[in-house]
């Protein structure tokens, strides 16, 4: 993890002042991260029945987060509030570096989860999270950053399109 991720988000002129403090997540954050991750998965459930959340998803979230916190191929950042929300985790990012055996760039940083509590949205925080996550993924060797989200999530689609992302692969599904 790049040391710059430790700095509060109030940087030079081109960085909008955002009301959060972004830092790498720690095992002690897991109880606060699980409910946020669950909110994101429940939102995803809204978009497609094949994204129905499992009954044991909370336990899974706990286990996955704990395992990935010590995985050098994972980037998990916690966003803390400031002021009255100081020390409260108000959002997080989970991203994984995956190998692409047949394409270049050969390492891809995939943003699998990005979630902010509603009162922290539309204030430049998402953009800041994306930028910092991209930097962290690049530091781990990724030559391309991708984002996974439900096909029907137009809000996410617009968010990434505005920031230069385009669809490169589609994931089509049907029940068996």
């Amino acid at each position: 993890m790049n040391a710059s991720n430790e700095t509060a988000a109030s940087g030079p002129a081109d960085t909008p002042t955002v009301p959060i403090h972004l830092r790498p997540a720690r095992p002690a954050d897991v109880p606060a991260l699980v409910p946020l991750l669950m909110r994101l998965k429940r939102l995803n459930e809204e978009f497609d029945p094949l994204l129905k959340v499992r009954d044991d998803a909370e336990r899974q979230a706990d286990e996955v987060l704990r395992a990935q916190l010590s995985d050098p191929k994972a980037v998990i950042l916690a966003a803390e509030g400031v002021g009255a929300d100081k020390d409260k985790v108000v959002g997080f990012v989970r991203a994984l570096v995956r190998e692409r055996p047949f394409y270049t760039p050969e390492w891809e940083g995939v943003i699998v989860d990005i979630y902010l509590l509603p009162l922290y949205r539309r204030r430049g925080v998402g953009e800041y999270l994306l930028r910092e996550t991209s930097a962290a993924l690049k530091a781990k060797g990724a030559g391309v950053v991708t984002a996974e989200f439900p096909a029907q999530n137009e809000i996410a689609s617009r968010f990434y399109a505005k920031r230069g992302f385009r669809p490169i692969q589609l994931l089509h599904a049907r029940s068996l």
Binding site: R39, L40, L43, E46, F47, I155
Partner: peptide, 17 residues
Amino acid sequence: AERDDVDELMVRNPWKY
């Protein structure tokens, strides 16, 4: 703003959100 269904409202009823 932190009610359980608030993200669902963002998608289904942005005015209520």
